[in-house]
Design a protein around this nucleic acid. Structure first.
Length: 256
DNA sequence: CGGCATGTTGCGCA
DNA sequence: TTGCGCAACATGCC
């Protein structure tokens, strides 16, 4: 499920619960769930997102949630049976109505943390490109210091929060930049193109994830040939993640 | 059976 | 202190 757009859709879904009171928590998976405080009886004050993390402020304390690789939250009726791969269930009373939030996660890389203070992981996140305008000067400063690829730098959550493998792949395709380009070789024009690519992809992926778009907006992720020039797409591994690009359309901008 | 997967962390090393 | 490269985590799917 999870890159910035998917997590944003989950945030909107869970926002239905704001104002409600937690009346029951079902969770047995010790890998996913870390309980530092008791949350039954607490009231849900909001649902926030930064990058791929969710923060749910309560009247006392917080819940932090991460979807890992295969996690998802959905809101159901309380009488609904457990879903396949259901790992956490939070029942919420709001007036006379009840709702039941279910967390499913086959691969169990996700997290559900109850705590009375902010998480270091949350505080370490860089700016979220959907919540705030991208600071290209800051990005340029960071890029200049690194020699790993632009794609790896974009996916570093302390650089920009929320960019995952697909978003980075597709944004770089739109920007016509080779993902292997060393970060310190990216110039201001490249960064402007990348910013635009990221913005465009977030919008399209959001529409898709909200069901307003029938087909996934991916141009090269999972494809074999370039939709622009018909060249055979190429695979490389960057930072341990598989990456795809068009060797004809995507260039390394190695000059200053 | 082998290989791959929208993510993060921890460890050794420079 | 910061950056880099990689294995590990756990499980489903093709």
């Amino acid at each position: 499920m999870p890159e910035l757009p998917e997590v944003e859709v989950v945030r909107r879904e869970l926002s239905k619960l704001v104002g409600g009171r937690i009346v029951r928590l079902v969770s047995s998976d010790k890998r996913i769930v870390k309980k530092r405080i008791h949350i039954v009886g607490r009231k849900i004050a909001g649902v926030e997102r930064r990058g791929k993390w969710l923060r749910i402020p309560l009247d006392e304390g917080f819940v932090f949630a991460h979807l890992g690789m295969t996690g998802d939250w959905t809101v159901h009726d309380v009488d609904e049976a457990a879903l396949p791969f259901e790992r956490v269930r939070v029942d919420v009373a709001r007036g006379r109505t009840m709702a039941s939030a279910r967390y499913t996660d086959p691969r169990r890389f996700g997290r559900f943390i109850t705590t009375d203070k902010d998480l270091p992981e949350w505080n370490a996140l860089g700016p979220d490109p959907f919540l705030e305008k991208m600071d290209l000067d800051r990005l340029a400063r960071i890029m200049k210091k690194r020699r790993s690829s632009v794609k790896e730098t974009l996916m570093d959550q302390s650089v920009l929060a929320g960019i995952g493998n697909i978003l980075a792949t597709e944004a770089l395709f739109l920007a016509r930049i080779d993902p292997r380009t060393p970060s310190n070789r990216a110039n201001a024009r490249d960064l402007r193109a990348i910013e635009k690519g990221i913005r465009t992809m977030i919008e399209k992926m959001l529409e898709y994830d909200e069901g307003k778009r029938a087909r996934a907006p991916f141009r090269i992720y999972g494809q074999r040939t370039c939709p622009r020039c018909d060249a055979k797409l190429r695979h490389v591994v960057l930072g341990g993640r598989s990456s795809i690009y068009c060797p004809r359309c995507q260039k390394r901008h190695s000059r200053k």
